[in-house]
């Protein structure tokens, strides 16, 4: 982290309620510049809601979000050109081919067409999508979709990259490609924030972790300060609190019961 410079991501009192349910209850997320940060938490902890608000796709009810010192909702011009996003699910323009999707995305970002084509060709090659580049995205597999989504998010060379569950449903080969690209990207000083359930992966990749549970950040910091000698998975289970006893109830379950 560079002293005196604002963090890549800083939120204060971020709050979002859907009807009766509080999805995010005052989150203060901090991600230092140049870190490979993991946002972990059980289902329904508010990871996706937080990332949606941070990337300007969902309006928060309260709170401040700053990316590199600029307010996401007060200064969208400065922020939106500097971030790349791969949201949850596989929401892409289905009726474009992978290549067309990249060209569209690049031009939308105001990059000259020739430059977009050059970058798109390189990204397609790195992502191993050259053969599929002229197929419609609607026919892509999950791994291919994640890869083309990541390519689209990287195309305008953002400072901060937000990925919601980038490895969910991805085969090991594609996952390896994604990891290599992301590691190269952070090695140059850019920041990655990604949410995940897979603790092993977070442990292997990340140098910074934020743990969410029930709409709150329950711990965040350099990964070693969170782990404190345990595996990340053990630390995680301790932090979010394992609910319910596995021993009581369910006596009917299994072949030993009659």
């Amino acid at each position: 982290m560079v002293e005196g410079k604002p963090e890549a991501v800083r939120t204060q009192g971020l709050f979002k309620r859907f009807g009766q349910q509080i999805a995010v209850a005052g989150v203060d997320l901090i991600v230092p510049r140049g870190s490979f940060a993991g946002l972990v938490g059980p289902n329904g902890a508010g990871k996706t809601t937080t990332l949606s608000m941070v990337t300007g796709l969902l309006r928060p009810d309260a709170g401040v979000i700053e990316i590199n010192g600029h307010g996401v909702w007060s200064d969208p011009v400065k922020v939106k050109s500097r971030i790349g996003v791969l949201p949850e699910g596989l929401r892409l323009f289905e009726r474009l081919s992978g290549r067309e999707l990249l060209l569209y995305n690049g031009q939308l970002r105001g990059i000259p067409r020739d430059e977009v084509e050059r970058r798109a060709d390189e990204l397609l090659r790195v992502m191993d999508l050259v053969e599929a580049q002229d197929k419609l995205v609607v026919d892509y597999s999950t791994g291919m979709r994640k890869k083309i989504g990541l390519a689209a998010a990287l195309l305008h060379n953002p400072d901060v990259l937000f990925l919601d569950e980038p490895f969910e449903g991805v085969d090991p080969v594609s996952a390896n490609t994604l990891v290599e690209v992301l590691q190269r990207y952070t090695a140059s000083g850019s920041t990655v924030v990604f949410s995940s359930h897979v603790m092993d992966l977070v442990e292997r990749l990340c140098d910074w972790v934020s743990v969410m549970s029930r709409g709150n950040i329950v711990a965040q910091g350099p990964i070693d300060s969170i782990r404190r000698g345990r595996t990340l998975n053990e630390a995680f289970l301790d932090l979010v609190g394992v609910r319910g006893g596995g021993e009581e109830g369910l006596s009917w379950l299994g072949s030993s019961s009659v």
Binding site: T55, G56, L57, P76, V77, V79, K80, S81, I83, V85, P87, G89, R91, L92, F93, E94, Y104, N105, L108, R109, A152
Partner: peptide, 14 residues
């Protein structure tokens, strides 16, 4: 556009 509209939304600032 449906769900893919986010791609425009993250790019549009003004």
């Amino acid at each position: 556009d449906g769900r893919s509209l986010w791609m425009n939304a993250v790019a549009f600032a003004t």
